[in-house]
Nucleic acid binder design. Sequence first.
DNA 1: GCCGAGCCTTTTTTT
DNA 2: AAGGCTCGGC
Length: 673
Amino acid sequence: MAAAFGMEMLNRPQREAAMQLDGPVLILAGAGTGKTRTITARMTYMVERGIPPRNILAVTFTNKAASEMKERVNGMIPHGKGKEIVMGTFHSFCVRLLREHAEKVGYKKNWIIYTQSEQTSLLKRIIMRLLGKEENYDPAKAQMRISSAKNTGADLGDPEKDTDAAIFQAYQSEMRALNAMDFDDLLLLGVELLENHADVREARRALHKYVMVDEFQDTNSVQMRLLKALIGPPYNVCVVGDDDQSIYGWRGAEISNILDFERFFPNPVVIKLEENYRSTTPILHTANSLIKHNAGRRPKTLWSSNTGKDGVRLVITQDDKEEADMIAKEIEAAHLQNKAPWEDFAVLFRTNDQSRVLEQQFRQRRIPYRVIGARSFFDRREIKDLIAYLSVCHNVHDDINLLRILNTPTRGIGNSTAELAREESSERGCSIYVVLCDPDFQRRTPAKNREAVRLFTDLINLFANSARTPGVQVAELTKRLIHDTGYMAYLEKQAKDPEDFTNWQNGIQSLLQQMEGYDQRDRASGLAGFLDEISLNDEREDKDDITEKKGVCLITMHASKGLEFPFVYLPGLEQGLMPHRRSFEEGRMDEERRLFYVGITRAMKKLTLSYVRWRMKYGQKQSQLPSPFLRELDRTYIIEQDYSRYMQETVTKEEGLSFISGLRALRSDKKPS
DNA sequence: GCCGAGCCTTTTTTT
DNA sequence: AAGGCTCGGC
C-alpha cells in the first residue's frame, strides 16, 4: 500500500510530523534532516486520507523550493493528482490573487510587476524631478529604504520636510499611475485584499483548508499577516523551518516568527528533526562548532551516523585566480579518477561576482558548469529591450519601459522630444503614451520628428491590439516585433565586435525558446501570464538550470539553501567578504554566520574551505585577511593546507595529478584541540 | 539627433 | 574590469 510505503521511509519524528494533520504544527527541521521528504510524505498522506488536493496550499519562500516540492509530490501521488495541490511562493500566490481582484485594491486589470531595475529607473526619474541632478541622491539606496519601510511599516516622516518621505510619496503615486506594483506591493496589497474583503477571505479560507509553509524562518511580518488572514479556525497550518538557516533578515525576515510561533497560532504541536542524513560527521561537527556561537537559537543538536572518511580541508592560496585554478583542477581530477559526474560538485560563494574568476578557469579547462540564479539573463540589454516592448504592449501606460524603447532602435525620437513628452505628461497627469498619441502634441513637435512619433504610436497601437487577442502566442508576437522594428539590424550595427552580435542573437534565441515553452504550457494567460512569470522568475528557469543543465554548479550561498552536493567548495572565506563588510558594519554577524553554516551543511561527502592572500577588487589587488569565522571552527576534523607551497614543491609532477590525493602524503601536523 | 571617446562608479545576498 | 553616463564633434 502506498501510504505504508511512504511512511516506512520516515523515522519516528518525521512520521509523527507527516501524520499530524489537524491544528497548528511547527516542524523544526535542521539542515539535511529530510525536511522535504517529510512534507511531501505529509501531502501524500493527506491525499490518501481523502483530503482533496486542491484544498492543500503549499507556500515556499523561493521558487527553487517550490519547484522541487512540486516535482517530488508529483512523483509520489498517483494519477497526476499532485498537480491539483496549489503551490508557489508568497509572491506568486499574491499575484494570482491580485490578478483576480485588481479593482478591489484600486488597480486596473492589466497591472504590471515592476522589477528592481524598473523601480530604480522610476526612482531615478523622481529624484531628478524632485532634487535636480546636482544632488547626489542614490536611487538604489532610496529603493532599499522604501522597501524596508513597506515591509516593517516604518514611518519615513513628513513629505514636506523629509527627503525620503517625499520620494516615497511621489513613488507611490507614480506607481499607481503606471498601474504597476513592486514586489513589496504584491504582498502588501495581497494582505490588504484579504483583510478588507471578507468575501474574498472566506472564499480563500474555504478553498485552502490545509496550509503548509516551507522555509518559515524566512517569512517577514507582511507574510505573517498574510498567513493570519488566510488561515482561520481550526488552523490547519503546518510550518517547517530552521532558525539556524534564517538568512533573509536584510529583506525583513523575522526570525521571531519561528522563535515564537505559538504567539501566532495557539498550542501548536512542535516536532524536531535532528537526525541528519546528508553529511558526514566531520562536516556536521564543523558546522555545529560554528553555529553554536550564535545566541538565541532554538536549541537543537544535529547528529549523523555517517562517520565518513574525509576531513574538512582548509586551503590557503596566493590569490583568487590561483584559488579558482585549484578548484577547477581538483574537480577535473576527481571527475576523472572517481568517475564522479560534474553535477556532484558545487562551488558556493558569497557574492555573485565571485563566479567570474571561476568561470574563466572552468572554461579554460573545458569543464562544463552552470551558474544558478544570477539574475543576469534578464539584465541583458537585448532581453530587457524585448521585454520592455512586450510590457508596453500589455500596458501602454508603462512609462519606464516606454522610455526605454522609445528610441530603440533609433528612430529619430531623441532626447529633446522625449523630454518634451515627459514634461507634458507630468503636467497633464497622464502617461507619456497618451501625450505621444495626442494630435496636438504631434503638431507641436518639429516636423522632422513628427512622422517618427506617429510611426511609433502606430506600431505600439498595432501590437497592443495583437497582445490583447485571446490565445495570443507570445513567441509569435515577439518575432513579429523584432521583424517590424528592425531590431536585429540595429543590434548588428551596435555590436563593437562580431562576438557581441552572436551573443545577443543567442540571448534572443533562448528567450524565444522560453516563450515557446510558455505558449505550449499555458494557452490561457496570454502575455500577462508570461510577463508575470518572468518577473517572478517563476519555476521555469530554476528547474531548467538545476535539473536539466549539466555541469559543476556555481551558486551563491543564499541560493544554495535547500540543495545538497557530494563535493562542495566554499572559496573566499575572508574578512570583508564572508562576513561581508556591509553586514559587519551593520552588525549582522549572526546572519552571516548562519549563511556560512548553510554553505557548510550543503556538503554530503567532502568539504573544502578556502581563502586567499590577495584578491582582485575594482581591478586592483587587495590584501586579504582570513575570515574571523575560521577561528570559531573546531579543529578536530580540519586539515590545513597551503596550496602555493604545495605547488612549488611539486613543480616536477604532472599537472593533472590531484592535489587531493597528493595531500594524503603531506600529512597535517595539526592535533585535535 | 547620433555616436563614440573617455570618465566615473561600482559590489552583498533575492522575490 | 566593466558597464553606465556625460560631453563634444558631427
